[in-house]
Computed example of a mutant assay.
Amino acid sequence: MPITKLAKQLPVPPSSATLWRWHAHGVQGVRLETVRIGGRRYCSPRAFNEFVRVVTARATSPHAS
Rank of each mutant, 00 (worst) to 15 (best):
V35F: 03
L32R: 06
T34C: 04
R58A: 11
P11M: 09
S16M: 09
G39C: 08
Y42W: 14
V35M: 03
R53P: 00
A47G: 05
A59E: 14
S16E: 12
C43D: 00
P45S: 07
V12L: 15
V30S: 01
V52E: 11
H23V: 03
L10M: 15
P45W: 10
A64C: 09
S61F: 01
L10F: 05
W20S: 05
R36K: 07
R21C: 07
S15R: 13
V35S: 06
T4D: 14
W22N: 05
E33R: 07
A24N: 09
N49Y: 11
P2I: 13
E33F: 01
P13V: 06
T4S: 14
I37A: 06
P11A: 09
F48Y: 13
R58Y: 08
L19R: 01
W22A: 00
V52G: 02
F48N: 03
M1V: 14
P11D: 12
C43I: 03
P62R: 04
Q9N: 14
S65K: 13
S61Q: 02
T34D: 00
V52T: 13
C43T: 06
A64F: 15
A57F: 08
Q28P: 00
K5A: 15
G39E: 07
P45I: 02
T18S: 10
W20N: 07
G29T: 06
A57S: 12
V12P: 01
F48A: 11
F51N: 02
E50L: 14
I37P: 00
A47P: 02
A24F: 04
A59D: 10
S65N: 09
A57Y: 11
S44E: 10
A57W: 06
G38L: 08
P2G: 11
G39P: 01
E33H: 08
V52K: 10
F51M: 08
G29S: 03
I37F: 12
W20R: 13
Y42T: 06
A24Y: 06
R31T: 02
N49P: 02
R40W: 10
V54F: 06
L6S: 12
R40S: 06
F48E: 04
